[in-house]
Structures are given as C-alpha cells and as structure tokens.
C-alpha cells in the first residue's frame, strides 16, 4: 500500500512498533551557546532581559555568568542544515524541514502529521560555550482514528544534555501521524 507524497518515512505499523522504547535520533547542536545567537533570538522577540546579555547582571541574579533563554534549548539542540561533507543542494531538491525524528525517521503508514501537545521541563541553565546534544526516544504509540484520518499519536521524548552530560531540559512532543481517507491507495 502507498499514499500520496507527504512528510515522513513510509512503513507498516509493525515497523513503527519496532521502534518503541528505542533511541530514534541523536543530534549534536550545530552551534555552541554564544552571545551573538542569544542576541538575535532576543531581537526577534523584542526581549531585553539582562541575565542573557550582561555578565554582572546574570551573576547578581544567581547565575555563574550570562545564561541563554531557557527555550533556546530547541535552537542549540538542532543539527546543521548543511555541513562540510554533505552534498551541495541541487536545483529542484526538496527543501530541508526541521528534523523531527518521530516524523521523518520512524516508518509509519502515514503521510501527514501535526503536533498536538508539548511539555517542556527545564533543569539547568545554559552558559556561554556549552554544547547541547538532543537524544530522542519513541516512548509511546497510540492508534487513533480522528476526523482527519487514521493514524496514531506518537510521543517523542527529547533529552537535552550539555557537554558535562548534565540534563538541561526534557521535552515530550506528541505528534499525530495519519493518512487522510482520500489518500489511501491499495
């Protein structure tokens, strides 16, 4: 069985189940925590809290130095869209999407998806020079038929750690992957 083109690796539900409880992706953040990327992240949100910009202010607030905004964890955990050794993009190539392992790397008989719920817990600050690694696990699969189509809620647990193996944050992301009724082909 196939389906119209969409996002995500195609496969059977048996293949999906075989990934349950396993690490489905490890991403090394492309950039270390540094002041320029912090400033640009804050600029677009018109945000000026000094603990993210000024060492003395950060120390006065109880930190060891300038700390990145907590939600930059997502940014510092993203791998590069291109790096040395990767092929150069050719005309007409599919655009690169944000790499979410449960959508793109876990096979399922689905070609569409949406995020339904996100939980983020913050455990440690990020300091200048830190390097962030994201380790993703598939922790649950719940088959469901919704109005949009047949599919399953897949929960991806992302553990973000720094170079000292300290857990910085844990994110649980629920994605509903499905195939629309009209897209099914035998």
């Amino acid at each position: 069985m196939g389906a119209k083109p969409g996002w995500g690796k195609w496969g059977t539900w048996e293949e999906t189940e075989s990934y349950l409880g396993k690490v489905i992706g490890v991403a090394e953040g492309a950039d270390a925590v540094e002041q320029g990327t912090i400033r640009r992240w804050m600029e677009s949100k018109e945000f000026d809290c000094p603990i993210h910009l000024d060492d003395a202010a950060a120390r006065a607030a109880g930190y060891k130095g300038v700390t990145a905004p907590d939600n930059m964890i997502f940014t510092y955990g993203l791998p590069a869209y291109w790096q040395s050794g990767d092929p150069h993009e050719q005309p007409g190539a599919e655009p690169r999407q944000i790499p979410i392992p449960v959508i793109f790397d876990v096979p399922a008989p689905c070609n569409l998806s949406f995020a339904s719920n996100i939980d983020i817990e913050y455990f440690a600050p990020m300091y200048l020079g830190d390097r962030i690694t994201r380790t993703s696990r598939l922790v649950s699969i719940k088959r469901k038929t919704l109005r949009v189509g047949d599919g399953a809620f897949l929960r991806q647990e992302d553990t973000y750690t720094n170079q000292h193996d300290e857990v910085v944050a844990i994110v649980n992301l629920d994605i509903f992957r499905f195939v629309a009724p009209d897209d099914k082909e035998d």
């Binding site: 949100k45 945000f47 000094p50 006065a60 607030a61 939600n71 939980d119 983020i120 913050y122």
Partner: peptide, 23 residues
Amino acid sequence: IGLFERMLREWMGTGGRLKKIGS
C-alpha cells in the same frame, strides 16, 4: 514558546526561574 518566556520573565524578574511549560 519564546514569547511566553519573555512574558513570564518580564513578570517574574531576573530572580525567578522557569521550571516548566506544559500541556
């Protein structure tokens, strides 16, 4: 989520700590 952080930070000040954003 970043805008939520800005709102919470502007309210709780530099001495506050963000613990969780969920559901």
